[in-house]
């Protein structure tokens, strides 16, 4: 079943289109990773999908309802983890969660239970009665996520939930997302960190300049650029190797030497490595070989010529 969809949605800021006729569908049980560099329109897309921002054109539907997608009944099934840490600094973790649980109409015992569950889920039970003012960045992030969980949403939208935190908290969050999926929650997850997406997403949508550049499973996306392979040789005698000869091997597009390390970029495929290796071995002893498989970062680089992760950590 399709939980959320956008059909040719256009959103302009002034004359520039933040969303340029976007089509998107999210099906039940998926973890959709929305990947793109800063300023690609990820946050705008999420704000449009949740009704925070009105769009200029196009149709949005939530839970199969496109006439009135942002009705209370639909909102009840929707959870949003904001990019900002939107938690109450003055209230303890538990109180903050009770607030949001109350907003979603939970009462007394039910509320207590769900709040305790949510705290347990993000691993903050021990800090239930502490004020988030003194929390570390990762703990605040986790609390920020818990705020969207007390009402058990069917569709959870997470806007960069792992920005600027320690690896431990990050792993915790990624595990939680997996666990949520196992419990049947559908998740839309934005990030500009491809490792995360590679790890958890069942489908990836790559966004750039307000357009969907590519979409598919991680495997499919990598298939499309499975054309290059970076092979690194550690050799005994780098000077003795005829670079010209290596370059002339069919499929090799680039050869570079630094120190005792030779990096060859070549078309992937059976036999290539053999041929290169045989040339190299003729002239020098080989100490080590390392071949990098393409990842999503390469997909993005190939499609747009841009690094995904420029300026990371500047926020």
């Amino acid at each position: 079943m399709t939980l959320a969809s956008m059909q040719s949605v256009l959103k302009r800021y002034g004359s520039c289109a933040a969303l340029d006729y976007i089509d998107l569908e999210i099906h039940e049980g998926e973890i959709v990773g929305l990947l793109g560099p800063n300023g690609a329109g990820k946050t705008t897309l999420i704000q449009a999908l949740t009704g925070i921002l009105p769009v200029d054109q196009g149709r949005i539907s939530l839970f199969g309802d496109s006439r009135n997608p942002f009705s209370d009944a639909n909102k009840q099934k929707l959870g949003l983890v904001t990019q900002e840490i939107a938690v109450f600094e003055e209230l303890t973790a538990k109180e903050g969660l009770e607030f949001f649980a109350g907003i979603y109409g939970l009462r007394r015992e039910e509320k207590k239970k769900r709040v305790a569950e949510a705290l347990e889920f993000v691993g903050l039970s021990a800090y239930a009665n502490k004020v988030p003012h003194k929390f570390s960045g990762g703990m605040k992030r986790r609390l920020n996520i818990a705020c969207a969980l007390t009402h058990r949403p069917r569709l959870l939208i997470m806007d960069e939930p792992t920005v600027g935190i320690d690896p431990q908290s990050r792993n915790h969050i990624l595990e939680s997302v997996q666990k949520l999926r196992e419990q049947g929650t559908t998740i839309l997850y934005t990030t500009h960190c491809m490792e995360e997406v590679q790890e958890i997403a069942s489908r990836v949508v790559i966004l750039d300049q307000g357009q969907v550049v590519k979409e598919g499973t991680v495997q499919q996306l990598i298939e499309t650029v499975r054309h290059e392979e970076t092979i690194i040789f550690d050799v005994a005698d780098p000077l003795g190797i005829p670079l010209r000869q290596v370059e002339s091997i069919a499929g090799v597009s680039q050869v570079s030497v630094s120190g005792s390390r030779i990096t060859v970029i070549s078309a992937a495929g059976a036999g290539n490595l053999d041929r290169i290796l045989s040339v190299v071995q003729q002239h020098s002893g080989v100490l080590g070989i390392q071949a990098d498989k393409p990842n999503l970062e390469d997909v993005f680089l190939t499609l747009t010529g841009k690094q995904l992760r420029d300026r990371e950590g500047s926020r």
Binding site: Q47, T50, G51, I52, D72, A73, K75, Q76, L78, G79, L80, T82, Q83, E84, I85, A86, V87, F88, F100, I103, Y104, G105, C147, A148
Partner: peptide, 13 residues
């Protein structure tokens, strides 16, 4: 400013 209002606008309130 902190975005809690965004969160509330997604909630049925």
């Amino acid at each position: 400013v902190k975005g809690i209002l965004k969160r509330l606008s997604v909630a049925p309130v």
